[in-house]
Design a protein around this nucleic acid. Sequence first.
DNA 1: TAGATTGTTAATCGATTAACAATC
DNA 2: TAGATTGTTAATCGATTAACAATC
Lengths: 219, 219
Amino acid sequence: MEEKEISQAVIGRLPRYFRYLGELKDQGVERISSQDLSGLMKVTASQIRQDFNNFGGFGQQGYGYNVEYLYNEIGKILGLDRQHNFIIVGAGNLGRALGNYLNFERRGFIFRGIFDCNPELVGMKVRDVSVMPMEEMERFVRENNIDIAVLTIPKTGAVPVAEKLVQNGIRAIWNFAHVDLNVPEGIQVENVHLSDSLMKLSYNIRRGQKPEEFEDGGT
Amino acid sequence: MEEKEISQAVIGRLPRYFRYLGELKDQGVERISSQDLSGLMKVTASQIRQDFNNFGGFGQQGYGYNVEYLYNEIGKILGLDRQHNFIIVGAGNLGRALGNYLNFERRGFIFRGIFDCNPELVGMKVRDVSVMPMEEMERFVRENNIDIAVLTIPKTGAVPVAEKLVQNGIRAIWNFAHVDLNVPEGIQVENVHLSDSLMKLSYNIRRGQKPEEFEDGGT
DNA sequence: TAGATTGTTAATCGATTAACAATC
DNA sequence: TAGATTGTTAATCGATTAACAATC
């Protein structure tokens, strides 16, 4: 069942669908039409149907979509039915905050380790994990089946660290460092450049202009 | 000098230009052509010229762009020549991490206050600011010329808090709560939905597909 | 069955890229 | 001046929206 390439524009909208469907499910809603979901999410019904159809027919003519089924299917598409082991590199405020964020666990993202080059932070507990020295990172990645590395270190260190991670088999980097990483084809990078996001906000304040309803989901 | 509306696609790229130009400036580079910048940033030279031209001619035929001048101009466009006072609502791990992030100050974003409804957190120091009780938020916003509120509270509280902020004159919300806010026209919202970002990464791991080179900046 | 609503094709819109004349 | 490179128009590409036939 080879699927055709889905555009990142569509992928970027999936988590938001997933969130709304989860809420509907929790409210006990059984079915929903693209029309009604459109009203809720403030996107066109047409876009909703187009988006879902990228992955095959989830709906039924005359009925709409079954909320729970659709929720589960989108979860599978997003890979949330699998476990992903992740480590955090950089045990500063942000790194520790992310380590303490329990909701990731619910989605299958399991916090396995955290590393820092500052000896004063080594040994500190983040949830039930102790901060380890940077020297141990490479071995840890190799030996513990780590899929994702969360980079919360200053930009100066980010490029060489990313390189080491790649060499040791990491599959994806969630990059909070304020620098663009250059990784080989096949390694995924998702950037969260917080200051970029803040600057966009700053621009929009100045202009008082109304940006598109929902322009990002992460970033 | 009324300018025409600039698309959010362009605005979203400005912080990245700003970052690269800042680095070039620090390296002592005086001028750069769209061609060279294109090689560096991996976007087309055509897009670079189109983007800059939205704001008037920053370059010179046969010469290129003056790095420092362009850097400053983009800074002004982004509103970084002004001060923005911000507060943080929610003194959990993420809120404290953002309060401690010194780089925002450099760009004119000044940390003025932090609030939490948990009495155990009230009084705790974040940098040189003490956590205040939620009850004081509204008055504080009114009396201290606060432009931006950073929302780092659970999604359940986010909607009513956003409402209060708007009522008391906030101009923009940087929303880390996992919910969509519905604010009046003219109030800016920039969402940073971290788990959405992580889900995108998860999708891309599964497919092993190469997403567009740089698809976000903050988000 | 008739009504509702999808799946899907066609039309539109906007963003990106290419091309080149203007000009430093 | 000649060469380089912008500013800008035109062409292309992709994403969104509209329309409607298929079908539950």
